[in-house]
Amino acid sequence: MRLEQLQAFLAIAETGSFQGAARKCGVTQSTISRQIQALEGDLGLELFHRTSQAKLTLAGERLLPRARKICQEWQTATQEITDLVAGKQPELCIAVIHSLCAYYLPPVLQKFCHDYPDIQLRVTSLGSDRALKVLKDGLVDMAIVMNNRFLTVGKEIVVETLYDEPIEVLMAANHPLAQNERVPWQELIRYPQVVFKDGYGMQRLVQDRFERLQATLQAVLEVNTLDAFRGVVRQGELVALLPHSALVEARKDPTLAVRPLACNGGVPDNSALTRRVVMVTTQDRLQIPPIQHFWQLVRENIPPQVSLERSAC
């Protein structure tokens, strides 16, 4: 059964003749006849009484509402795809890590809403692993996250690096570590820490560094918002390792202190502790004009110019 056969069937039912159906469909009468014969062959029953006027048989009457529904669904589907290619979509869904959502993304959001006022922009703040999962599940159109090479593989996945940024230490202003210009790792590992919850790339990054140092991470508290990090650390005992972009507000707070890390003396390759922020979508989505436009806006407006000086090492 083919769509044009159903369309021919409907045209005959509406016009009452094979000749009228041919004019309606813009084909020859013999073409209409062949399509109906093929359809009847598939079904095993005649659909029309061949008289002076084509009248539906019982089988034809049963098929009529179903054929209308199938053809209407096809018309709706093709129109939706046409609208999609033309950039006419009801919403654009983005999953973003907290630090970008709070500080660097708002100008991009404002620009996009100005350029596409008819599209509802939906932004969800999620941890990196969760954001990549909902992208793969088709629940969002794009994710801006900390890179996870295990979750960004696949021919359909498009990944663009936005920037690398250093990880720094957040502490209370009166914390003993605040006396250091750069915090030595051998000192840092002595203090209990507040960390991101499981499923956040930062937790995995910090845990991996402590394992490479052959040190125990004293993770006594897990939170998932930047406000919570600042509030807990402000109490005086706990410290936190956070990316540069997550510490914008903390740098303005006189009750808090932010310090860069010193050399990673215990790490074999002596590398600095940094995270990579990437933009991720799929090949098919990147062909859709609004998604393509948002991708370009992010590329043009992010990254912030973050210094990765390692002079102390």
Rank of each mutant, 00 (worst) to 15 (best):
I36V: 14
L241I: 08
P65K: 11
G41N: 09
L221Q: 13
T15L: 03
L170I: 06
P176G: 09
Y200N: 09
K69Q: 13
T216Y: 11
E91D: 15
R276L: 05
R275T: 13
R122Y: 12
V194K: 00
L205N: 12
T281R: 09
I97M: 11
A173T: 11
S30R: 11
I36S: 04
Q75F: 03
I291H: 05
Q29S: 12
N270M: 10
I32V: 15
E46I: 02
A67V: 01
E91Y: 15
C93D: 04
K24N: 10
T82R: 14
N270H: 15
M142R: 12
E40M: 07
I288G: 03
R68D: 02
A257L: 01
L58C: 12
V232K: 14
V306Q: 05
L3P: 00
T282M: 10
L56V: 11
L177I: 03
S99F: 07
N224K: 04
D118M: 07
Q235M: 05
I97G: 12
T76C: 15
A219H: 04
P290G: 12
E237M: 11
Q235S: 06
I70W: 15
A22K: 09
L151D: 15
G20D: 08
A8V: 13
L177S: 01
K111H: 14
E237P: 00
Q296P: 13
Q203P: 00
P243L: 04
P65A: 12
R251E: 07
L242K: 03
P304A: 13
G44R: 04
A250W: 09
E309I: 15
A54G: 14
V223D: 07
G44C: 03
A143T: 04
E91A: 08
D253M: 04
Q296D: 13
K24G: 13
V108P: 10
A228S: 15
Q19C: 07
A67Q: 05
Q89N: 06
A8T: 13
H114E: 08
R190F: 03
P289N: 08
L39I: 06
K133S: 08
Q207C: 10
L92M: 12
K197M: 09
A240H: 08
G266M: 05
Q53V: 03
V267N: 10
D42H: 13
P184F: 02
L188H: 01
T274V: 06
V159P: 07
C263E: 13
V277S: 07
L217G: 06
G44S: 11
P107H: 08
P304H: 11
Q203K: 09
H244Q: 08
N147D: 13
V159I: 08
Q120V: 12
K133C: 11
S17R: 05
R259I: 03
A173I: 02
Q207P: 01
I81M: 11
L121H: 15
Q179E: 14
P268G: 07
S307L: 12
L242A: 10
A11D: 02
Q296R: 06
G231T: 02
P254S: 11
L64K: 04
F294K: 01
H244E: 09
L297F: 10
Q75C: 03
L139S: 14
R130N: 02
Y200S: 13
L177K: 00
H98G: 14
A21Q: 02
D137M: 15
E168R: 09
